[in-house]
Design a protein around this nucleic acid. Structure first.
Lengths: 190, 190
DNA sequence: GAAAAAAAATAAACTAGTTTAAGAAAAATA
DNA sequence: TATTTTTCTTAAACTAGTTTATTTTTTTTC
């Protein structure tokens, strides 16, 4: 039987106390554990009733494809983070794909909603996500791509090393060519 | 005594049933009603423990001033909408100012948190805000200013009429000069 | 470990959006 | 209603970032 201990420990963490056997059983029942190879599509634009994903291991990205076929990374999520379209159950415009081989737990919106009535701290994940997105939004709106790249390097040096450059440029909202230019300029300085 | 009926009707709406007298009393106790003249600053960057605001009448904007002193509008909120920094109680980087004469109810984070344990639907305001911001983020990231302006016109024609043009340009993340150019181009087409 | 495929770098011509400045129009105030 | 202040427009020179194309480097696969 699959090992759910990472998931239990997350709930114990947000719950701030050990789980009862019944709570464990419920969690085991409402989440499904899956393993995906690198570059596997986990969620697809156009789907409704999409799932929420909690990551045990690996790295995933959520992205959108615009009217010109260009991809924009909305979010990266790694170990012990959530990823999913909070707009569910409405039809999602986003894709989610693994960047590395990954192990994730998935849960339906219905069950997720039930859980966050019980674990109010879970509602905090949404709030934290909002604050994070708002900060990023302001950065994209008000700063140059070069400044945004510096911010990434400072805040998430470990994450950058796990991503190909063109995925980073897509997260910054610039072309790979332009990011390459920024890096060349940076390299000269040192 | 101040009239809180608009606020009560909001809670009845999210609660999906009439409020008890006790609930009304609690709401009356935790919210404070205020009237502000146009262009009054309601929240200031640098403050901690900022409040959440529910608007009965008028129009407010939340904005940030970047390192070059330039303003960027993050959010407009009007009748029957919330505005505030969800990052509270941390020190806020944002300002909130009235765009029109306004009547607002304010509530502390502590009381707000208590309420959203009771009215789970209130947590939904945060979630909806997230979905809204994500959509806007994608637009700013992937579309031209002209396309973003068209989107605004389609989605919020009434709101635009209540805002000076330079406030709209700041919301779109472009200079007033550039928005004026877009409008001139648009006017020619018709 | 050679071959193929994917990712990154470089260059040149281009475009969306900025900056500065000056004048025109609209709104607020005396 | 005249005056002052605020907002909007227009224009010209500029810059951040794009596009397309070619080459080099790195990674994957057989």
């Amino acid at each position: 039987m699959a090992d759910y201990s990472i998931l239990y420990s997350y709930f114990e963490h947000i719950n701030k106390q050990p789980l009862t056997p019944e709570e464990m059983a419920e969690i085991h029942r409402v989440f499904r554990k899956n393993t995906y190879k690198k570059k596997t599509m986990v969620m697809k634009a156009g789907e409704a009733n999409t799932l929420h994903y909690y990551i045990e291991k690996g790295l995933l990205r959520m992205y959108i494809i615009d009217q010109n076929g260009k991809e924009f990374n909305i979010l990266f999520a790694r170990e012990r983070q959530w990823i999913g379209d909070l707009g569910t159950p409405a039809e999602t415009p986003y894709f989610i794909e693994t960047v590395e081989d990954s192990i994730v737990y998935s849960i339906s919106e219905e069950n997720f909603h039930t859980l966050y009535k019980r674990y109010i701290a879970l509602a905090n994940y949404i709030r934290k996500s909002y604050v994070f997105l708002q900060k990023r939004f302001v950065s994209i709106l008000s700063k140059t791509a070069e400044e945004n790249y510096e911010e990434l390097v400072n805040d998430y040096p470990g994450l950058l090393q796990r991503l190909p450059q063109y995925q980073i440029s897509s997260y910054l909202g610039v072309t790979p060519v332009f990011l390459s230019k920024i890096l060349a300029k940076r390299a000269k300085k040192d």
